[in-house]
């Protein structure tokens, strides 16, 4: 059995070496990945964040482009903004569905300036801080905001209507959100600075996904970060807390694209999507994926044909 012992030690050492060399060449593994960028010329690599709506929007973009004869490569479910923006900048992906407000706060040092919260103001400010080599196309009327959401029982128990109401009781409450919330301004930092709200505990879960919803219904967290178009809010009769100080800005859906990948055909196809996308039709379409568990590709196709885009 000595041999086995040596073998497992060696394999652990090999694993360590592989891990070190994999990360060793550069601190950003995506930077070495030419997979996306080196696809056939004229191909657009469409990416998405790691939640259902982003994937649905990316699929709608992809099919709208394909309907216009553009070659599309799908690279969905990449991760949080901190991660996929890097992928966009290094050319691993060319196009993403974005949210104007969240993107602005991520790009602007110290977050969006005070008073900038309407869709137009946010877009104007966003255009000034976009990373070089990228541009945004026309934004949709559809919005999907970060929210602080509680159950009906929690809302009644602590008489909560707005985020302000959380201030005196937050010390007894646990909040659940994606792990990035711990360090983001539009997460715990902003809540503390803008509203003076400091929670008892932060549970790093998923970005408004099933874990967060599940934990909220089981009262394992009392406050959850859920996106405003999420069908689970209506389904579970959750209460969305108002945001009177506009910590969460306008969040219109907007295509973010690498300038080198853009051309009039692409712009035309994507702007046609933005023109038809509203909060209402996005919410009902997303419910087909989240509640009825339909396949994202066929739901996207359904939306495009309803709106006469394919």
């Amino acid at each position: 059995m000595k041999r086995f012992g040596r073998f497992s030690l060696v394999s652990a050492a090999v694993a360590l070496t592989v891990a070190l060399t994999a990360c060793g060449a550069d601190e950003d593994p995506l930077a070495n990945d030419n997979g996306g960028g080196s696809a056939a010329p004229g191909t657009i690599t469409v990416g998405s964040a790691n939640f259902a709506e982003s994937e649905l929007l990316a699929e709608i973009y992809s099919q709208a482009l394909e309907a216009k004869g553009v070659q599309v490569k799908r690279q969905f479910n990449i991760g949080a903004r901190e991660l996929y923006l890097k992928a966009l900048q290094d050319g691993s992906i060319d196009l993403l569905p974005e949210y104007n407000g969240a993107l602005l706060s991520a790009l602007q040092k110290g977050g969006a300036a005070e008073g900038v919260s309407s869709p137009e103001d946010v877009l104007a400010a966003l255009k000034k801080v976009l990373p070089s080599g990228t541009e945004v196309l026309e934004q949709a009327a559809a919005e999907d905001k970060d929210t602080l959401t509680v159950t009906q029982e929690t809302a009644t128990k602590y008489s909560l209507k707005t985020i302000d109401d959380l201030k005196p009781v937050a010390g007894q409450l646990t909040i659940g959100a994606g792990p990035e919330w711990q360090e983001r301004f539009q997460g715990l930092k902003g809540l503390e600075q803008v509203y003076g709200v400091k929670f008892k505990e932060f549970k790093p879960l998923d970005a408004g996904g099933p874990l967060t919803v599940n934990a909220l219904t089981k009262n394992q967290i009392q406050v959850g970060n859920i996106f405003s178009t999420d069908s689970s809010i209506a389904k579970n009769k959750f209460v969305v807390l108002e945001d009177p100080k506009n910590l969460y800005l306008a969040e219109n859906i907007i295509p973010l694209i690498r300038t080198t990948a853009n051309n009039p055909t692409v712009t035309g196809a994507l702007n046609a999507v933005s023109a038809k996308l509203t909060t209402e039709n996005l919410t009902t379409t997303l419910a087909k994926v989240q509640l009825d568990k339909q396949d994202t590709a066929s739901v996207a196709k359904g939306w495009l044909s309803e709106n006469g885009l394919v």
Partner: peptide, 27 residues
């Protein structure tokens, strides 16, 4: 997971190394 979520590869690397060292020590 936190390192990946906020694009902090130095943290991811730290996690990978500590796990690997722990595995070797335990063995």
């Amino acid at each position: 997971i936190d390192g990946l979520a906020v694009n902090d590869y130095s943290r991811v690397l730290a996690g990978a190394i500590v796990v690997a060292v722990l595995a070797v020590l335990l063995d």
